[in-house]
């Protein structure tokens, strides 16, 4: 379902899609400035992807796309702002995987049904990192230690109940350990968690691999695993959990561009089409490569189904690790 598009096939696809779309009157364009809401802070991965996409949409449509960081409440504030806006196409934003977790942990009533998914922007798998002086050099060694000494090790990466917490707790649960066999230490995002990791404050960190890539390449941290089924071009030697773990556990966060629910179809399909063309461009491919990430894309229908499926599976994980409210 998740397509890794090579540039050539993508361009061919778009050419085909363009011809088909011409009949669907996907010809809406904004005639004043558009507000692009990012629920996470400036400097992070969601922010970088969103700003790049917004600047390319701006270039394409000749209208300003104003990026606003509406942070807070572990994503609640920004997602609410997107969902509650007028669905007229003049407010869109980056809806992230938290739309599938926040309502399960009781932060908000908001679900994926309150937004109109327009395009998939990024898939961000979790990683398992340890400091370079750590005693563990494999994921199985780490899990064995945690199985024998539950509560001895600590891990960090995001807030309590955040997506990287679920990545760890879900993996432990899938491998038959107690979900808190490695204790979670909440942090305000990946940067302070990585700081704790190399300072020796925690034993493990499970952020997006792209966020720890600099440390891994510098030799200050080791990547024990990558919670995905396909290897990452930037760090091809990191083992995949899908292959090394018996449970085949994987977990990836995602970033979409979405609007409020009830967006008119011609507006939605115009966005989808415009973003598809951007994602197929060389400029986007270069941007992605610079961040060590893969170019991904999905149709609107696929994306809706993907979000619905994620909602269910993440709900089960949250239930299993005892974070559900």
């Amino acid at each position: 379902m998740l397509k890794k598009t090579s540039l050539v096939t993508a361009t061919a696809l778009i050419a085909g899609a363009g011809a088909a779309a011409a009949q669907d009157s996907c010809d809406w364009t904004p005639d004043r400035a558009v507000t692009y809401i990012v629920p996470w802070g400036a400097g992070g991965g969601t922010d970088a992807n969103s700003r790049k996409l917004a600047s390319m949409l701006e270039e394409k449509w000749g209208q300003p796309f104003n990026v606003v960081n509406r942070t807070g409440g572990n994503g609640v504030t920004g997602h609410s702002a997107i969902a509650r806006a007028d669905p007229d196409g003049y407010t869109v934003g980056s809806v992230t995987v938290e739309i599938n977790t926040m309502h399960w942990v009781g932060l908000t009533d908001l679900t994926y049904e309150d937004v109109t998914p327009l395009a998939l922007v990024d898939i961000v798998p979790a990683s398992v990192l340890v400091a370079d002086d750590s005693q563990f050099d494999s994921l199985s060694g780490l899990l064995d230690h945690a199985r024998e000494n539950p509560g001895d090790l600590t891990a960090s990466g995001t807030s309590q109940g955040g997506i990287w917490h679920l990545a760890l707790a879900g993996m432990l649960n899938a491998e038959g350990l107690e979900p808190d066999a490695i204790r979670w230490i909440p942090s305000q995002g990946a940067a302070p968690a990585l700081q704790e990791l190399i300072a020796g404050g925690v034993d493990v960190a499970t952020p997006a691999l792209s966020e720890g890539k600099g440390l891994v390449e510098a030799g200050d941290a080791r990547a024990l695993a990558y919670m995905h089924s396909e290897p990452m071009e930037a760090l091809p030697d990191v083992p995949l959990t899908a292959e090394t773990l018996d449970s085949g556990w994987t977990l990836a966060a995602y970033i979409t561009t979405s609007g409020p629910a009830g967006m008119p179809d011609n507006v939605a399909c115009s966005y989808a089409q415009a973003i598809d063309e951007i994602i197929a461009s060389d400029e986007w491919a270069e941007f992605k490569a610079s961040r060590g990430a893969e170019v991904v894309s999905m149709s609107r229908d696929e994306l809706s189904a993907y979000m619905a499926e994620k909602d269910e599976t993440l709900g089960e994980v949250i239930e299993a690790v005892g974070l559900a409210q």
Binding site: A48, K52, K213, G214, L215, E217, A218, G219, F287, A289, S290, R291
Partner: peptide
Amino acid sequence: LMKGLTPGP
């Protein structure tokens, strides 16, 4: 990063 430079030692 966007310019293809990874900060690090």
